[in-house]
Design a protein around this nucleic acid. Structure first.
Lengths: 218, 218
DNA sequence: CCGACAAGATTGAGCGATCATTCTAGTTTG
DNA sequence: CAAACTAGAATGATCGCTCAATCTTGTCGG
C-alpha cells in the first residue's frame, strides 16, 4: 500500500519502537535478558504486552535489536576516534573518558549481559562478532598508521596482538567495576596512559622475552 | 567396576551436593542462571526435582554455592603464585597459562554469567566483592615486594593501580574470547609479557604524561 | 540369623504464579 | 466507514517449589 503520510506514520512507529527499546534496556539491565519479562517491559514502556508484538516478532528480536543498537553506538564512537588529526594524542586523551565510560556500572551491567548472552546464543554471537571484527579493523588501521609514522615496521599479527591487548584492557574494566566498586579512577587512568604509551612505542619484537630460554611458541 | 561406596552419611550427602553442583554448573553455562530450570538441573543430575530441595534451600542457594566454589578455586590459584620463589619470573612464566585459561570459552561463559548476576544480585555481589578484595590484597603484596626489591618506592595508590590494570587485562580476555573466537593466543601471550614487564619496571611516576601539552612520541 | 521397624533418602504429581505469545473486541484515525 | 491501532483478557506451557507417599538402609529384640 502507498505511503500517503509516510512521515507521520513512520515517525510514530519509530517512536514506539524506540520507546520499547528504551524500556527494555532498563529492564534487561535490572533483571537480565531472561529475568526481564514482557509484562515488565510493557509496564515500563507504558503499553500493553500484546502491543509490543506489533513492533517485535518476539522477545529475542528485542534482545537482538538492543544488542545491535548498543554495538552500533560503539562503532560510531570508534570512527570518531579515527577521524582525529593527531591520532596518538587523541588516543591518550581519550583514555580518560574511555576508562570512565567502561567504569560506569550501569553500562557495564548491560555489556556483561550482552556478552553472556552471546556466549550461549548463536544469533547474538553473530551480531557481536561482526561488530567486533569491524572495531578491530578500525583500531588496527589506526595503530598501523601510528606505528608507521613512528618508523616501526610491524607484522599484521603483531598489530592484531596490540589491538587485542588494548581491547582486553578496556573491556576488562567492565569486569573490574563490578568486582571492585570502590576502584580509584584517577590512578587507573594514569596507569592506562603509561601502559598504552609503552605498548605503542615498543620496538617491534622478535621473540621478546621468553620465560625459560627455549624456542618460541608456534 | 563399581565405585567405592561412601561410608558415612556425611560423605553420601556431600557427594550428592557435589553431584547437583556439577550438573547445575553445566546447565548454567548452557542456559544462564535464569534460563536453567530446576527441571533441567534435576534431569542433568539424575535425581528428582523435589530431592534437590533436600540439599539446597532454593535455586539462589545453588547459584551462590557455585559462585563461592568458583571463586574459592581462584583464590587457591592465587596463593600458589604467591609462594613461588622467583616471583617475577613466575609471574611472567605464568602469563602463558593465565592467558590460556582466560581464553577458554567454557570457563569464560560461566565467569560472565557470575559477574552479570553480581551486577544485579546483591548477595552474589557480596561474595564476588569479598573474593576480589582477597585477590587484590594478595596481588598487591606480591607487586609491592617485587617493586621494593627492584629499588622502587611506590605509593599504595600506585600499587593498587597496577593491580587493577593487571586484573583488567586478564579478565578482559574473557570478553575477548567471546567477541573474537579466532583470537591468536601466542601473540597475545607475547604482548602480555611485554606489557607486564614494562608495567612492573616502570619508574614510579608523578603526573606521568598529561594529554594536552603535546610531547612528541620519541 | 531373622523379621519388624524407625529414620532418612527419594520420588513425582501437583500447586499457584508467571512466562511468552495470541486473540478478541473496542477505539482512533484518515 | 473501513482500516489501522491498541488494550488487556485468555492460552497453554513452564516456572520454582511443596508434600504425601514410597523406597532404602541400618538397628535390634527375639
Amino acid at each position: 500500500m502507498r505511503d500517503l503520510e509516510p512521515k507521520t506514520v513512520q515517525q510514530r512507529s519509530d517512536a514506539r519502537r524506540a520507546q520499547i527499546l528504551a524500556a527494555a534496556t532498563g529492564c534487561f539491565r535490572e533483571h537480565g535478558f531472561h529475568g526481564a519479562s514482557i509484562a515488565k517491559i510493557s509496564q515500563a514502556s507504558g503499553m500493553s504486552p500484546g502491543h509490543i508484538y506489533h513492533y517485535f516478532e518476539n522477545k529475542e528480536a528485542i534482545i537482538e535489536a538492543i544488542v545491535a543498537q548498543d554495538l552500533e553506538r560503539m562503532l560510531t564512537l570508534n570512527s570518531e576516534l579515527r577521524s582525529a588529526s593527531d591520532v596518538k594524542g587523541a588516543l591518550i586523551e581519550r583514555t580518560a573518558e574511555g576508562v570512565q565510560g567502561k567504569l560506569d556500572p550501569q553500562a557495564a551491567g548491560l555489556q556483561l549481559e550482552i556478552i553472556a548472552e552471546a556466549a550461549r546464543n548463536p544469533r547474538v554471537a553473530g551480531i557481536v562478532e561482526a561488530a567486533d571484527r569491524n572495531c578491530r579493523a578500525s583500531l588496527a588501521e589506526t595503530i598501523r598508521n601510528l606505528r608507521r609514522a613512528a618508523g616501526f615496521e610491524d607484522t599484521e599479527t603483531s598489530i592484531a596482538g596490540m589491538v587485542e591487548v588494548l581491547a582486553a584492557m578496556f573491556e576488562g574494566l567492565q569486569f573490574r567495576t563490578i568486582r571492585n566498586p570502590d576502584i580509584d579512577k584517577d590512578v587507573v587512568i594514569d596507569m592506562f596512559r603509561r601502559v598504552i604509551h609503552n605498548l605503542l612505542s615498543q620496538p617491534p619484537g622478535e621473540a621478546a622475552m621468553s620465560p625459560t630460554p627455549g624456542p618460541k611458541a608456534r
